[in-house]
Simulated scan of single mutants.
Amino acid sequence: MKNRVSLLAPLALSLALSGCAAAAGSTGDAPPAASPAASVETPNAGHAGHHGTDPAAPQAGPAAPSEAAKMVCGDEPMDRLTTILSLKQKPHTVSNWANSTFTCTYHLPEGALTISVQEAPDQAKARTYFDAMQALATGVTPIEGLANLGFPAYETAAGSAVFQKDNFVLKVDASALPAAVGPDALSRNALAYQLSTTILACWVEHH
């Protein structure tokens, strides 16, 4: 909790000063539609994305990912990740759209980091999905107080952070990485939290 709270000031600064590259679009209701699977790779991508069917996922949602959802594969989390880990070049990414979920996988030297956004038809269904995810997860600790930024949130012992905002459920999964990453030996949970707040800052800015 101490690591998370210490990051609130930089987050507030980013809300005031940062310019997110893509327009967030609406984070409110989306018209129900079938969600055919679609995979999109970045120009230098060479691996397929992975996202399995989740029985808890809403069965109706947008036909394509919103601009807000696609921000998880955008410049802000990419730059943040590159800075935190002191990478010499930006990591290769692969994005995928399936089952109303946009997934971006960052291929790092230490392993894969996956960020996903489940888009529900409305906020109530997103909360139902969030609650189901939390109930099914193991090693769950709620993120409370100032650290959750006013949103339902939890983290897992394996290294994931999950937030629900409007009709979105954001999950940053660092569980495939080593226990400590980067020159500052950041924990998986701290990394997942920092990337989550970076994305949430963009969503709040463009809401």
Rank of each mutant, 00 (worst) to 15 (best):
A68N: 14
E110A: 15
D75P: 00
L85D: 07
W97F: 11
N96W: 02
P62V: 03
S116K: 09
A64W: 12
A112L: 13
L108Y: 07
K90M: 10
L108C: 10
P109D: 11
D79E: 08
T83N: 14
V117Y: 08
T83F: 08
A112P: 10
G111K: 08
L113S: 11
H92D: 14
V72Q: 05
W97G: 05
M78N: 15
D75F: 01
T105W: 08
Q59V: 00
T93P: 09
P91A: 00
A64E: 15
T103G: 13
T103P: 04
A69C: 13
V117C: 05
G111T: 09
Y106F: 12
Q89A: 08
P62R: 05
Q89G: 10
D79A: 11
C73M: 00
A68D: 12
T93V: 07
G74C: 14
M71G: 12
Q59K: 03
V72I: 15
G61A: 01
I84Q: 11
A112K: 12
P77T: 00
S66W: 02
T82Q: 15
E76M: 03
H92Y: 04
N96R: 10
N99V: 09
T83V: 04
R80N: 11
A60P: 09
A69S: 15
Y106E: 04
D79L: 07
G74F: 13
H107M: 06
W97R: 01
T93G: 06
E67Q: 14
T83H: 14
S116I: 03
V117T: 07
P65H: 06
S86I: 02
T82E: 10
Q89P: 15
P109C: 03
S86L: 06
L87H: 12
M71F: 07
R80E: 11
M78P: 10
L85Y: 03
T93L: 06
Q89Y: 13
T101I: 08
T83D: 15
P77H: 02
P62S: 10
M78S: 13
G61V: 02
A64Y: 13
M78D: 13
D79Y: 03
S100L: 04
P91D: 01
Q59Y: 00
P62F: 05
L87R: 11
L113V: 08
G111C: 15
T101N: 08
L113I: 09
P91S: 00
L81Q: 06
I115R: 02
C104N: 06
Q89H: 14
A63T: 01
D79F: 04
A69I: 08
L108V: 09
A60Q: 12
A60Y: 08
K70P: 11
P91R: 01
E76Q: 05
K70S: 13
P65Q: 06
P77G: 02
P58F: 02
P62A: 09
M71L: 13
A112V: 11
P91H: 01
D75Q: 07
Y106I: 02
V117K: 06
I84L: 15
C104F: 04
P65V: 01
T103K: 11
P58Q: 00
I115L: 11
M71A: 11
A64M: 12
T101D: 09
K90F: 05
H92L: 04
L108K: 08
L85Q: 05
P109F: 03
I84M: 14
A64T: 13
A68F: 07
Y106L: 03
H92R: 06
